[in-house]
Amino acid sequence: IQLFSRPDFLGDHFSFEDDQAALPASFRPQSCRVHGGSWILFDETNFEGDQHILSEGEFPTLTAMGCLASTVLGSLQK
């Protein structure tokens, strides 16, 4: 999965292949690309809070990911 700090796959980005119990504190994903398989994104660290399940594809905004525009993602799980 690739996470981007701005909508439309712009800004800083991080790529992950494994579960992340905590995303970098200063990084707030605003768009993402899922390459193969599914990922669960969580509103809180340690895989807690609301879950957003994404299958392979491109998600140019938080709302395209099924999140509110104000959502701050905290962790993710493959």
Rank of each mutant, 00 (worst) to 15 (best):
I1D: 03
Q2C: 11
Q2Y: 06
F4L: 02
F4A: 05
S5M: 07
R6H: 12
R6W: 06
R6C: 11
R6N: 08
P7Q: 10
F9A: 01
F9L: 04
L10D: 11
L10A: 13
G11Q: 00
G11W: 03
G11P: 01
D12C: 10
D12H: 10
H13S: 15
H13Y: 15
H13P: 00
F14Q: 09
F14D: 04
F14K: 09
F14V: 13
F14A: 07
S15V: 14
F16L: 04
F16I: 04
E17Q: 12
D18C: 10
D19K: 02
Q20K: 07
A21H: 12
A21E: 13
A22V: 14
A22Y: 10
A22T: 13
L23G: 02
L23F: 13
A25N: 09
S26R: 12
S26K: 13
S26W: 13
S26I: 07
S26V: 08
F27H: 00
F27E: 03
P29G: 04
P29F: 07
Q30H: 09
Q30G: 04
S31F: 06
V34W: 05
H35G: 08
H35V: 15
H35C: 09
H35R: 13
G36R: 12
G36F: 07
G36Y: 09
G36E: 09
G37N: 06
S38D: 15
S38L: 10
S38A: 12
S38Y: 08
I40Y: 05
I40E: 08
L41R: 00
L41F: 03
L41S: 03
L41V: 10
L41C: 01
L41W: 04
F42L: 02
F42A: 02
E44W: 06
E44F: 07
T45E: 15
T45G: 11
N46E: 08
F47S: 03
E48S: 13
E48Q: 15
E48W: 04
G49N: 04
G49P: 01
G49F: 00
D50Q: 14
D50T: 14
Q51I: 07
H52W: 15
L54G: 05
S55K: 11
S55Q: 12
E56T: 10
E58W: 06
E58F: 04
E58K: 06
E58M: 04
E58L: 02
F59G: 02
F59L: 03
F59Y: 15
P60S: 08
T61A: 04
T61P: 05
L62K: 06
L62C: 02
T63F: 09
T63V: 13
A64T: 11
A64L: 05
M65I: 09
M65L: 07
M65K: 08
G66Q: 05
G66A: 05
L68A: 14
L68I: 13
L68V: 14
A69C: 10
S70R: 09
S70K: 10
S70G: 15
T71E: 07
T71A: 09
V72C: 14
V72S: 14
L73D: 04
L73N: 07
G74I: 06
G74K: 15
G74W: 02
G74R: 15
S75R: 05
S75Y: 07
L76T: 08
L76N: 00
L76P: 00
K78Y: 06
